[in-house]
Design a protein around this nucleic acid. Structure first.
Lengths: 152, 152
DNA sequence: AGGATTACTTGCAGATCGCAAGTAGTGCAG
DNA sequence: CTGCACTACTTGCGATCTGCAAGTAATCCT
């Protein structure tokens, strides 16, 4: 995904989406914002998969440039910056959901504890309800984690 | 996604999925296999976004190692290798679909001609029907393109 | 005033990428 | 059965990107 200078290589929407999201970290940051309620640099850093700080800064910048996240200073502590998904960002919920379900089915079936299994069943059964819940939480700025951390 | 030596950095299914799919090219190859009916090295190469041959060879190898695609020689022309999605690979259809819809909504709205718009409406309206169609085509080894190339 | 906290930057070695060229095995026309 | 074309890669190389460690700037906290 880096190495592109703003050019879309094809007219395909999938290619266009991957211009922004096609790397190891972007969707993980979006996951943290969407379902874990993270919003600061430090929280992303401690997210469990060990992203380097320079890469994290770079990805946040790119996501902001792409209009997927926005940032603003904490009014109560000027050291801190709060990141938040934009409308365009929260609209990635279905992508993240499907990626999560695929990963759980095929890549991490062992790590699926009972909580996870229940969650999976719920998401599969009531997809639209789940997605509505994600959006509602975003609208209400509810920061409680939606999903347990899956060991991470 | 390269640079990982088989270790999942977190227990999260999203992270596990991105270990395999989190790069610029993998999902594009999967798109070509799934909706365009491509199956040979050369077809992927001419796919429109200019992937280098060494990278293409590497990604095909990785996807095969990950159990997402399989390969076999063309019985009628031993020069040629046919690649095909596995069950695990075709199960990525919902991810690809959501990525496509998001990209079309937010990243490539201009390139959406009337055919594309109709397609989008259809996918949004009858998601499960569309996904069933994709799977059916895969089962029947139907190679006719499901979707126009979107200019690419 | 001094130390801690937060969000980054910087420097650098090593990995990865894109590009161009080369190679191996096979098919096919003459 | 020879020679050229075709398909699927592999190799070499310079440019870019990554991960790690360390450093910096602004701000709070005592």
């Amino acid at each position: 995904m880096p190495g592109l200078k703003g050019k879309h290589r094809s007219g395909c929407p999938v290619g266009a989406a991957l211009d922004v999201l096609g790397d190891r970290w972007s969707m993980l940051i979006i996951r943290d914002l969407m379902v874990r309620g993270y919003r600061t640099f430090k929280e992303f850093q401690g997210s469990g998969e060990g992203i380097a700080t320079n890469i994290l800064a770079d990805r946040l910048q790119r996501l902001e440039t792409a209009g997927i996240v926005s940032s603003e200073k904490d009014p109560e502590d000027a050291r801190r910056v709060f990141y938040r998904l934009t409308e365009k960002g929260i609209d990635l919920a279905p992508v993240l959901l499907e990626l999560l379900m695929w990963g759980a089915r095929h890549e991490a079936p062992k790590s699926a504890g009972p909580v996870m299994k229940q969650m999976m069943a719920m998401m599969a059964k009531d997809r639209v309800g789940f997605l509505a819940e994600v959006r509602k939480r975003w609208e209400e700025r509810d920061l409680t984690p939606l999903i347990p951390k899956f060991g991470g």
